[in-house]
Every structure is written in C-alpha cells, then in structure tokens.
Write a protein that binds this DNA or RNA. Structure first.
Lengths: 229, 229
DNA sequence: GATTCTTTTTGTGTATACAGAAAACTGACT
DNA sequence: AGTCAGTTTTCTGTATACACAAAAAGAATC
C-alpha cells in the first residue's frame, strides 16, 4: 500500500511530530515526553527518541537537562533575526529568479499571483495565506539553486506558525498583494536587483509589524497564563 | 574536570565524528558502520546511532537503503550552489557589520586582517588559512544577528573541507588578502552595500575557480580510482 | 565452466531491560 | 508550622537482544 522501502518508523514519526509543531498543534513550550509519544503512536521509545533527536538537530525542539523535550519557543528578538535572514534568502531567490526563470516558471508565478488576487477579492484570508506560500515557493523554485531552495523552504517552514499570525494584521492582505504585484513585474522584466530589494522589504519585519508580532506571540504560548490573568 | 552535566555520550560522539568529517579524516564517500564506530569508541551502538542521526539531519552523512551510513559526497554543481548561498550570507553579514560593528569589533577585524598579512608575507598558507577563518567569523559576529551567525558558521563549517582546497590555487592567498583589505575598509567606513558586494564577490565560486574546484574534488574521493586510472 | 538457487552472514531497525540521577513527596524534628 | 532529610518514583541515557531483509558466497545443475 504505502511505499515499501519507507522502512523507517523514526522518519515517519519525525514528519508527524514536526507537522504538529508547524501547524501549531504543539505550541511553543509544549512538553514532549518520550513515553507518552510512544504510547500515542503505538511504538516503543526508540524510534520516538530518534525522531526527537532529528527535530532537535534542526532546532524545532530542545532538551532541558532533566525536564524532557520542549517545543522551542522562539523569543521575539530572535524571531526578528530569523525574519531578517529569511528576507535575505528570499531576496536572493528573487534576484536569481529574475535572471533564470523559464517562461513556464514565470507563468506559474504570475498565475499563482492571480489566484492570490481572487482570494483577496473574495476576502478569504485562509486561502490567501495558502496561496501566498505557493507564490513564495514558486519564486524559490525559479532560482534554480537546489540548495537555496532547500534552505529557504526549511526556514519558511520553521517560521510558518509565526507568519500565520502576521496576516491577522489589519490590511496586511492588501499590502501584501500590492507588494507581490511589483515583485512579479520585476521578475518578468528580468530586473534582479529590483526583485531582490522588493522581496527583502516584503519579508522583513519592521516597525509596527514588530509590535504586532510580539503581541501575537503571546497568543501562542501556554493558554493557562490567560486563565491566571 | 570537564563539565559534569555534559552527560550525553551521543553529543560528544557527534562532535568527534563531525570533526573527522570536517577535517577530512573521513573523506566524502567513506562508509560508516555503527558496530565499527561503537567498538572504536568503546560504547554500544545506541549513542553512536544517535550521533549519526544528528549528523544526517544536518546533511553531513546520508543513509543508503541497505548500505549503511556514508559521508555525503557533495557533487560539484551543488557545491557551487552552496558557495553561492554562502556568498549571500557573508554579504548580509558584511552589510550588517558595516552598520553595527562596535569599535572593539572593528578593531578585532582589522587586527585579524593584519595577522593575515603577516602570514601572507611569511608565505605560510596553513596559518593564513586558519586566520582567514577567524577573519570571516569576526565579520559574522559583528553582524549582531545571532541566528545569522549560527547559520553562516554552520555553512562555513560544512564547506570547510572544500574551502581548504581553494587555497592551493595559484596566488589565491594574495588575491584573497587584497579583497580582505577592501572589505575591511568598507566596514570601517560604514558602507554596508559596498561591504556586501565585496564579500559576495569574494566568496562566490566563479569562472576558472570553478574548474579548479571540480578538479580538486577528485583528490578528495576514493583514492582507488586513481589506482585504476 | 557458467548460471541459478539456496544458505549463510552481516547489518539495520525496533523493542526491552537496566542503571543512575534528579525531582517530588513524606515524615520527623526543631 | 516550617524546614530539612530521607525515601520513593519517574525519567533519561545506554546496553543488549531479537527479527527481518538484503547481499554475498557456495553448491548444484545444466
């Protein structure tokens, strides 16, 4: 039924757990106990442990001396740093995409952008959010640098639970769309430096958006706090 | 004597094995067998396995279906992609460093550069190679972006066995030094964009250096090939 | 002599067992 | 009643054992 050579419980478990983190099911700060996870997935501790070790190596979780594993809660300042790096990587993708994108890839970017427009006009933030990811990934792909694509995608995924919050910001969807339009034009015109600068500005977290980010961070972590307060 | 809470054989083992890869003791393509490594280090398979899993997560080794673990041999085209990304990250470090470096950090960069000069004039490539790393790391630090520093350092380390080969290229030490001088000046002058562009050009693998890289790659992998040929 | 089938060996993936340490709880003493 | 000490429990790190699968080697047959 499923792939026969996918022998590797620990890999499948890593994907499952990572998915739970990325989607926010396991919020930052959540404790992960090996035995619980093992029972939950009906396996022994060993493959669970191996999955957790992989997740730790990529920074998704961290191990506290005697406290078990914990979903990494990224502090706001570090999150800004990560968005800065993300911005730079996207800028690089954009520069390369403007130089290297094939006709098919250009068309794919433009089409995804138009789909974003429909989602915007339908005032459907969820759909816009989904298409926004497709849009950015399309630009990554057009860079024709496999390593860059991997790195950018990984960081994109890492930041996913935090980016989702950004769209709640007032008018973000419209602003985002307008920025996309300019980016697409720059790529189509082959203007690498322009696309690069636009993408950097588009992704980076500046000014008031930083405050939004910080405040929305609080809605992610331990809900019990809100009960106390 | 050593840190008492460093209980974690797998961590120590990961560092040891990674060191062997980075220094080139384990050349690309080398087979790593769990039992051999376990005996070699006087431990059981479990911590070895955990160490290998971590190394796989970062891309140092990869697992072949039924062939065990193998030190990842990076193909030349991918290596170029990685150097391109490295160049972009260094460029970003330089741009930030020019804006943010403290007096102490500027002085540290300049001093390391002067040490490079002494190594160059003493015609000591090994020492120059070592100081070159210190120089670049000093620029990373001056960027004041902890995440960027981590990422850049990790990629730098990843590329280390390949960068070493580059210095064998004729006159590379002198060219490198001159480029460093311009970079230092740009950072001291606070010219972020200039530092950025210079660093990108300094790190990237272009033109004839690509050919050098490809040919030097062959000296890394399985020596039996040269016996056959 | 070559090819194919069978058997053996080797190596990985998962489970389980065991030891040691830290944290929590309980009891006693001040 | 509070604090300190001792005991118990829980959890982690490491070792070992077992099963399954693939590759290699050897034997038999064509």
């Amino acid at each position: 039924m499923d792939s026969p050579v996918t022998t590797r419980l620990s890999e499948q478990l890593r994907e499952k757990i990572e998915e739970s983190i990325v989607t926010g099911a396991y919020a930052p700060g959540t404790r992960l106990e090996e035995i619980d996870l093992a029972e939950m997935h009906g396996v022994s501790r060993t493959p669970i442990r191996e999955a957790l070790i992989q997740l730790e190596a990529v920074g998704f979780i961290s191990k506290r001396p005697r406290k078990g594993w914990e979903v990494t809660a990224i502090p706001a300042p570090r999150l800004c740093e990560m968005f800065d790096v993300m911005a730079e990587m996207e800028a690089m993708c954009g520069r390369l995409a403007a130089r290297r994108a094939t006709d098919v890839e250009q068309r794919r970017i433009r089409l995804t952008h138009q789909a974003c427009q429909r989602a915007k006009e339908a005032n459907d933030p969820a759909e816009y959010y989904r298409l926004n990811e497709v849009f950015h990934l399309a630009i990554y792909d057009a860079s024709h640098n496999a390593f860059l694509i991997e790195q950018a995608s990984a960081l994109h995924r890492r930041l996913r639970p935090y980016r989702r919050l950004q769209l709640r910001v007032r008018n973000r969807m419209h602003t985002s769309f307008n920025e996309h339009e300019a980016i697409v034009q720059a790529i189509e015109a082959g203007q690498g430096d322009v696309a690069s600068d636009l993408l950097r500005a588009h992704v980076v977290v500046q000014g008031e958006r930083f405050t939004d980010l910080v405040s929305s961070l609080e809605s992610l972590v331990s809900p019990k706090l809100s009960v106390v307060a």
